[in-house]
Write a protein that binds this DNA or RNA. Structure first.
Length: 597
RNA sequence: GGGGUUGUAGCUCAAUUGGUUAGAGCAUCGGACUGUCGAUCCGAAGGUUGCGAGUUCGAGUCUCGUCAGCCUCGCCA
């Protein structure tokens, strides 16, 4: 084999005269009958090879047989292209290689789609032939960015005193949280490991073990339904620190994000990052992961509309619900069918039973008035108060939902983001980081009549709120913090409970009896009793970060070998059936799927 | 589990209201061509319209079922 001396993105005019060997894939061939030009591609770039029939007839003859995606090595001399023949579109466009010797390392079948093209290709096909898809420019770029991000993150944490420590993939199943992927044990009949949803307890135990600072870039597994930004296995940057408070963890994390964005996108992030309380986020954006790149904030008009004669709203407010809305600037041009079919249908997905609307129009006296089929239910004063609340101007569209707080916030948060996109308010080049803090520790679970952790059961309350564990669980704030970028939660964490008594009280409120706690977390509760340092940490979703760094809205694009929405790998055809012998070894019997008809 | 959407040549797409032999660009194959660079020019080949029923004189088009991809609600501490 002709061994390569350089890669295909390396050579420049200054290398003129050097004898080099390049290896790679044939991107395109241009056969002029006489001269043959080949664009050779490898991970680092493209270089033009020239085959001259008079100078090197043997190489030229072989070159005429080349086809796209064949793998070759070629030896020749770097030559500055003739004047006017340079190609400014190529990094190596000033030079070409005059080839004297060509070796075909491997032929290739005609690919099922064009590797050398930015055209959209059916994703099913891309996933089946992922090795060809990964050869394409866009995927090469994404993998390069992902690799660089991982390196920066590793270097940064190493420099800041973190040990990279691996935690087990075969762990213990815990019933709360997401559904576990289970792995049957051959050694212990009827017992199962679970793949980790996150290394949560192990990293806390590492703090108890005196490791001081731990981090890991680690796979996590959750057996839940997939979405555009969710895969059954995904990658976290997981870290934990001893003897720290919230500001320490936030400071370390901010520093790392700033470095990643500077190095990869050359963007300077203003530090410290903005912080927003959970309550403010929900009140103004309807969600705990606000996209702050545009305004269109939610406004509460319950107090105004409760006085109106519009029964839908008055009943809602009197029944303990609320009425909130958003004001879409300049959107009064939306047609009635846009609003009553498209937008109303959109919020219906989130449980909203209706979407009330006002168009702000110019009245007879030139002043703004509200127009809609329900406007007659609102007095002039009420209308004025509504416009005042939204700072509405002529040409705006006010959209309102009256329902339980949960539905109002969920539906309007989603509607706000949709309209933000539709109206072109989102600047794709802007990166708005915000820490969301002051989360409540618990949320009440009506169905089960108990409290649920908003974050997870090991999250510490603020010290001054600890006494409320007995009296007022609803108003306990937690030392949790989420970092939100453009509406995506990209990292989250908390200061952990390091006091066994507090941990026991939290379990109790969560409806976890001593017995259950023993069985599930006994090992951890024991560990807590042997000298636990105050500690806290955080985990990043690396996949989502790479999505934002590369501007894709599809998590499959940032994972080399992702799964479809049904959890299939189209490349390998996993998951698949197994031999009866294998099942027997594991004491597993497959039962037929019960028919639901 | 629910809702939506897509499926036509190797790829990306088109095909009027249900109406003649389902078309185009790219790719492929053959030929020509000594400075191209998404080469160009000439020619050829390429189809179970995802699959299965049904309605109809007639279905790529309408109906039902089914399979697969995607988006989404529930779900994801």
């Amino acid at each position: 084999m002709l061994k390569r001396t350089n890669n295909c993105g390396q050579l420049r005019a200054a290398d003129e005269g050097k004898e080099v060997t390049l290896s790679g894939w044939v991107r395109s061939y241009r056969d002029h009958g006489g001269l043959v030009f080949i664009d050779l591609r490898d991970r680092e770039g493209l270089t033009q090879l020239v085959f001259n029939p008079e100078a090197h007839p043997k190489a030229h003859e072989l070159a005429r047989t080349l086809r796209t995606e064949w793998v070759i090595s070629a030896k020749g001399t770097v030559r500055h292209r003739a004047e006017g023949m340079e190609n400014p579109k190529m990094a190596t466009g000033d030079i070409e290689i005059d080839i004297c010797e060509l070796e075909v390392l491997n032929k290739a079948k005609t690919p099922p789609f064009e590797v050398d093209s930015n055209a959209n290709v059916n994703e099913e096909l891309r996933l089946k032939y992922r090795y060809l898809d990964l050869r394409r420019d866009r995927m090469q770029h994404i993998m390069r960015v992902r690799n660089r991000a991982a390196k920066i993150i590793r270097d940064y944490h190493q420099e800041n005193g973190f040990y990279e420590i691996e935690t087990p993939m075969l762990g213990k199943s815990t019933p709360e949280g997401a559904r576990d992927f289970l792995v049957p044990s051959r050694m212990t009949e009827g017992a199962f490991y679970a793949l980790p949803q996150s290394p949560q307890l192990f990293k806390q135990i590492l703090m108890i073990s005196g490791m001081d600072r731990y981090f890991q870039i680690v796979k996590c597994f959750r057996d839940e339904d997939l979405r555009a930004d969710r895969q059954p296995e995904f990658t976290q940057v997981d870290l934990e620190m001893s003897f720290v408070d919230m500001d320490d963890v936030i400071g370390i994390t901010e520093g790392c994000f700033a470095k990643v964005f500077k190095d990869i996108l050359d963007i300077d992030i203003q530090l410290p990052m903005q912080r927003m309380s959970y309550n403010d986020a929900v009140e103004n954006y309807g969600i705990d992961r606000p996209d702050t790149r545009f305004e269109m904030l939610l406004k509460d008009i319950s107090a105004i509309v409760v006085e109106s004669s519009f029964k839908v709203f008055t009943n809602t407010v009197k029944g303990g619900g609320m009425v909130k809305g958003i004001c879409a600037k300049g959107a009064a041009t939306y047609s009635r069918s846009d609003i009553e079919k498209t937008l109303t249908g959109f919020v219906a997905d989130f449980g909203a039973r209706g979407l009330a609307w006002f168009k702000v129009q110019e009245g007879e006296d030139g002043k703004p008035v509200l127009f809609s089929s329900i406007a007659k239910f609102f007095s002039a004063e009420q209308q004025a108060a509504i416009m005042e609340t939204f700072q509405a101007e002529i040409g705006d569209l006010i959209l309102m939902v009256g329902d339980s707080a949960d539905i109002v916030h969920k539906s309007l948060a989603a509607l706000r983001c949709k309209l933000g996109e539709d109206l072109g308010l989102v600047n794709e080049d802007q990166f708005n980081f915000v820490w969301v803090v002051d989360f409540p520790l618990f949320a009440f679970n009506k169905d089960e009549n108990r409290w649920d952790s908003l974050h997870h059961p090991f999250t510490a309350p603020f010290p001054e709120d600890v006494e409320k564990l007995d009296s007022d669980p609803q108003n306990i704030r937690s030392q949790a913090y989420d970092i939100v970028l453009n509406g995506y939660e990209i990292a989250g964490g908390s200061i952990r409970i390091h006091n066994p008594q507090v941990q026991a009280k939290v379990f109790k409120l969560l409806g976890i009896t001593d017995e259950m706690a023993r069985e599930r977390f006994g090992f951890f509760l024991d560990a807590l009793e042997y000298g636990t340092p105050p500690h806290g940490g955080l985990a990043w979703g690396l996949d989502r970060l790479v999505m934002l760094l590369t501007g894709t809205d599809n998590i499959r694009d940032v994972i080399a070998f992702p799964k479809t929405q049904k959890g299939q790998c189209l490349l390998t055809d996993a998951p698949s059936g197994v031999d009866a012998d294998q099942l027997e070894d594991l004491y597993i019997k497959v039962v037929e799927k019960p028919t639901s008809k």
